[in-house]
Amino acid sequence: MNIVSARNIHKRFGQQEVLKGVSVAANRGDVISILGSSGSGKSTFLRCINLLETPDAGEITVAGERIVLGAGRAARSTRLRRQIDRMRGELAMVFQSFNLWSHLTILENLIEGPVHVQKRARAECIAEAEALLEKVGIADKRDHYPAHLSGGQQQRAAIARALAMRPQALLFDEPTSALDPELVGDVLRVMRALAEEGRTMLVVTHEMSFARSVSNRVMFLHRGQVEAEGPPDELFRDPPTERFRQFISGHR
């Protein structure tokens, strides 16, 4: 059964139609890389899955719970908003610019959601958060504020924060684009480890090597539509379209 699926998502900003019916379905343990040049709509698509952007039309299923969005149906009713909050709790997001809460320490960032949104016991959350920090390799930074960390450390903290929510799936929105090249490796190593654990992941990225070696499926978006999709080995060996070929050669 699909853990996350989005079907026929449409989104427009004013006159511009950004997504023209994009679909994806992830089973448990899937790692899906979403590629595309800037403006292709890949980030918007990811944000639609988490409902940070409300799609104009389409259908989203997360852990068996389904939301159908259509013309004239805005996310206004309390019931719908509750549902969206519930679904978001199952999908943790890692942002390009980390978005750690700057007024909280790293540990506080990790337990904020579990304690206040999921109402779990504080002591249990702290123990779990410490283990997660250990895992991403920044256990010594637990009482520092985000501003004191390097970009790579901040992104690893953000990943730990996402994991602390015990999500069904992880969404990554260009997690390494804002990092210095020498810091990218640390973050990718953590992501690779998560993939090997069998986590379900949707990753918008420019890292071709990651897409190629870690993910088990690749989607290529162009102008709001899926232009190519399939296992990375096939796709990279034999690009189905000229544009995709140019894209991967442009990104080495």
Partner: peptide, 23 residues
């Protein structure tokens, strides 16, 4: 306030009131 931090709060399902109070 960085918009991203508010978005991060939304992404983990924080409701408006809690977002206001906590973030």
């Amino acid at each position: 306030i960085s918009r991203g931090e508010i978005e991060a709060a939304r992404s983990i399902g924080m409701r408006t009131a809690m977002r206001l109070r906590r973030i």
